[in-house]
Structures are given as structure tokens and as C-alpha cells.
Design a protein around this nucleic acid. Structure first.
Lengths: 205, 205
DNA sequence: GGCCTCAATGGCAGTCACTGCCATATGGCA
DNA sequence: TGCCATATGGCAGTGACTGCCATTGAGGCC
């Protein structure tokens, strides 16, 4: 029944990681990120603080694990995806694909983490950095595959614009009520990309 | 000769702030952000650590003071600027205007701070958050002035796109050699906005 | 000048995230 | 079973940051 493709030690480690993520999101969501210490958290899952910091680089990272998962698969996909049509369209396709390929429990964790991040500036900052770091990596990958220079302004702008859409979609998803539905997020991402031309042409006053 | 429009006590406070910013950028630039403690820093300017944390919210903030100054004037301007033509064009105009209205020593400090931030993840994250926070404030301001809903997708996208351009311009400015020239940055910002259509249409493969 | 008020500062003790070091325990394997 | 590699725990230490209280010094009033 249980997967045995990994040695017991690895599975134990992964189990502890998952347990910490679940418990952290639950505790932080209920009492607030700053009100729960690492010691509180590891006490709940019978681990030592020292071990926590071997499994995660920081207290923030445990909440942003779903974010890392998403961008990890995004980066993995971008290296082998089909490059057809406008680059922005490709980015949209890969992003949507990455969202749809996530585990069933990803959406709930991601959304819960995002709501915690919204009332915790330090977390919000860290999340922004994850996205920014990823775009740099993606830029290098794409430059290699397309023959463009990694410093090409258009390439970097296209990536930053993808982030722009991603951020707006995220905001709207976090606000939306109801259960965490990744397809809802996909719709918001699509809406964002579709609204780009109109946003650039928007005239006021 | 010296400005006397402020009481002595206020001037002293401001002088200490400026002194701390200057010294911090110098020390962090030479030895690295993580290698210089707050105690090291305040030792150089004969202040207590306790006072440092009353003048700045965090160790990071002292480096990002130029960033705050820029976005502060940007926000101040956006409340009273002329709203004509496409919103994105207005944002470009106000951003350029804000850069050009900075003090003479702003460019050097900003650039030095940016180069420190590039090799200090925590600083980069904080800087991203400043920008993100500002866009939220700007969004609310613009929504009030234009009659748009603050949650309007096109409005938020336009703001995020401005950030996209800003980030690329920043990267290029930090890489560029030579003395810190704000007009050079203005040119990069203009280039970024101008390249947006091409970036969105960019086709590869 | 002398005095009073209040903001700015300094010092101190404490919390908490995070790290290096060493001892211990436990899975993997012959 | 016994050996080795790795994971874990405990401990002591660093450094950012805060609350509290005593002290200093600016600004106004007589």
C-alpha cells in the first residue's frame, strides 16, 4: 500500500517535513505567524528545534513550501516544454500546467499559506523573493533554449509580466471564498493574461 | 547658512539618520551586510543600538532608505498629478518625475544600496516588499481619483506592469559601470516602457 | 539666568531565530 | 550480528530586536 520506492530513512524525513508543514500552517493560521515560536511548533510534532532547521532553511520556509513546490515544477517544465507562439503565451501555458499537475492537497496548503503571508510582512517579502529568484532561473533556461541573450530586455520583461499576472491572480484567489479550487486559480491566471492588452491601453480621466 | 526651519532637536535626529545611512552603506558595501553587526555600525557614529532601532525599524531599513524616499515622493505625486492619456503612460511620467526630483546624493546611495541588496537575499526581499506595498497604496489613491474600483483587474495589472519595468531598469542600472547618473536610470525606465509591446509579442522557437 | 516639562537617549535584561559542535541513536548493509 | 553512514538531540553561543526605567538635554516660561 505505502510507497516503498524510497528507503525508510528518506520516507521518515519526508513524513516529518510534511507533518511540520501541515502543523505549521494550522498553528500559524490560528494564532498568527509571530505568535507561534519554532519551539511551539516542533513541540507539537515531537521534534527538536535543531532538526527543524535542518529540514527547513528558516521559519518562513515551512509556510512557503507549497510556493516552492509550484515554482519547482514550473522550472522543471520550462526546460522541456514546446516553444510555440508568443513567449508570453508559452509562459501562461506552462504556469497553468504546473498548477494543474499539483497534488490534491496543494491548493489548500498554498491558499492557507498565502492568507498567513498576507498578514505577515516578513512572509510576503520572502514569497516575492521566491518568485523573483525563479524568474532569474527561468530566464537563464529560456535564454539557453531560444538562443536569446539572458540579459535581453524583452525576455526579462515577458517574465516580469508573467509575475505581474501571477500576483494579481493570487490576490483574487486569496480573497475568494469557498474551498480551495486550483481550477479557479487557473481561471484567474487566464483572465489576467487576457486582460493585459486592455490594462496597457487603459485610459482614465 | 544651515537650515533653521526645524528645531535643533529635529535636526539632530535627522543628522543622525543621515549619518547612519551613509555609514551603513559604506560599511555594508565594503564588508557585506551580514558581516557587519548593528553594534559595529552604531559604534562608528557614537550611538547606542537602542537608538538605532528607534530611528529605523530594522537593520535592513537603513540600506533601503533611498528606496523609501523614491516611493514616498512617487506616492505623493500620484495624488495630484495630471491624469491624461493611458494610465501606464501616466505612471511612467510620474516615476520619471520622481527620479528627477531626488536630491543630488540620492542616486549614489540608491545604487550602492541596490548593489548590497543584490548579494543579500534578505535585503532583496525587503526591497520587493516596499515596491509591492507602494503599489497597493497607489492603487487605492488612483481608484479614488479615477472612480475605478480599487480591485479593478486592469488597474492592478497596470501597476504591476510598472513594477515589472522598474525591476528590469534597476537590474540594468546596477550592472552599468560609471558614476551613478539618475538620467541614465530614467533612460532605462523609458526603454522598458517602450519595449513592453515588443516583449508581449515576442515569439521564439 | 533659573526652572520645569517632555522628548530623546542609553543601559539592561530578556526573547527568539538560527548555527556550530559533539554525543547519541537508528536505518542500511555485509 | 556487527559496522558504517546518516539523522537526530542537546547545548552553548551569536545577533536582531523589544520593553522598561533612569538620565540627559532641548525648548519654553518666569
Amino acid at each position: 500500500m505505502t510507497r516503498t520506492d524510497l528507503p525508510l530513512r528518506e520516507r521518515k524525513k519526508l513524513r516529518n517535513r510534511r507533518l511540520l508543514v501541515d502543523t505549521a500552517i494550522e498553528l500559524f493560521g490560528e494564532h498568527g505567524f509571530d505568535e507561534v515560536t519554532v519551539e511551539d511548533l516542533v513541540g507539537r510534532v515531537e521534534l527538536s528545534p535543531r532538526t527543524f532547521f535542518r529540514l527547513f532553511d528558516s521559519k518562513e520556509d515551512v509556510v512557503l513550501e507549497p510556493v516552492q513546490r509550484l515554482w519547482g515544477t514550473f522550472t522543471a517544465t520550462i526546460g522541456s516544454c514546446e516553444l510555440r507562439g508568443p513567449l508570453v503565451a508559452t509562459l501562461e501555458r506552462v504556469l497553468v500546467g504546473a498548477i494543474e499537475s499539483m497534488d490534491d492537497d496543494w491548493a489548500g496548503q498554498f491558499l492557507a499559506g498565502r492568507r498567513i503571508a498576507e498578514r505577515t510582512p516578513a512572509l510576503a517579502a520572502r514569497e516575492l523573493r521566491f518568485c523573483a529568484d525563479t524568474t532569474v532561473a527561468i530566464g537563464a533556461l529560456l535564454a539557453g533554449r531560444t538562443g536569446l541573450d539572458a540579459t535581453d530586455l524583452r525576455l526579462r520583461l515577458a517574465l516580469e509580466v508573467m509575475l505581474a499576472v501571477w500576483h494579481t491572480a493570487n490576490q483574487d484567489w486569496a480573497v475568494a471564498a469557498g474551498p480551495a479550487d486550483p481550477e479557479w486559480l487557473v481561471g484567474l491566471v487566464r483572465d489576467g493574461f487576457a486582460a493585459l492588452p486592455e490594462a496597457l491601453g487603459l485610459t482614465v480621466g
